[in-house]
Amino acid sequence: MHDSSLSDTRSAPATTAVTKTRFRRRSKWLRAWFPYLLVAPAVIYLLGITLYPGIYAIVQSFYAVKFGPWNPVGFNNYVKLWGDYQFWGALWNTLLMGTISLTLQCVLALTLAFHAYRDPWVRGWRIIFLVPMLFMPSAVAFIYKLMFLDARVFSDILIRFGLVDGNLAIQSSIWGSRALLILTDVWQWTPFLFIIFVAALQGQDEEIEEAARLDGATWAKIFWNISLPLMRPVIAVALVIRGIDITTMFANVFIVTKGGPAFGTETISYFIYRTGFKFFNFGYASAASVIMLVLTIIVAQVVVKRAFKSARG
């Protein structure tokens, strides 16, 4: 079968002079360090933007810094923080709103994903659900500020349905304001989890599910006993990423509630911003940053590392 083609090569000289280089010796040193050289620029850049500020914040936290010179105050800033109910309140608010919001998002996203992932129009649903996530957070904050506070559309609808008598006083109620911030976050970020969960469900081995069906399992049982346990690593990663973003929530607070009423919606990010850039109490704000930093490192080491390890298998 290859006679015709190969007879050509017989006529061509088999020793076509392709360049033959003298053997180059490679440098052992370069080979050992090459991978480090490749990763170094990124690491140095990140060190610059994390380590430098971290050290800067630690140093600054031992000074009273307004506009002028830095006055050393020892541990005073930390002592003051310890007794600052606004700081503890901010920490509590962050945790409280974060937990409620994250739980709601997770349950909603799971429910939606489980109903959507085998739907023939799943791509369509995904695009619709994505819309809130792709607005700038400041825009989302304004949508909710206008709808619930300034233009009172929400109250108006409730009144029209006869559910309430007069305008709701959301702004002056701590839980009303918290609920509003949570709602805003749920609206914008549930799709994040939804997309991840749909992908995870679609990626599951159908044969396992079919075997369970043949064994007579109902869809609820399949969900609880098969799909959900298989998704655990994915859920962990998604919640970790989302959880971190929630605890750093800032734009919504800044635009919708300004931390009010009575500091009831002030998050830790907003606390640092307010202390530093509204009252220009930089040393004090840095002390709060350092505590946040320590918490972050603990969470990163304990939770994040494990979540990502298990998801990557």
Binding site: K20, F23, R25, R26
Partner: peptide, 12 residues
């Protein structure tokens, strides 16, 4: 010729 230290790309 000893090839241990020669890179794959140069061994032809």
């Amino acid at each position: 010729e000893v090839m241990n230290a020669v890179d794959a790309r140069d061994r032809d």
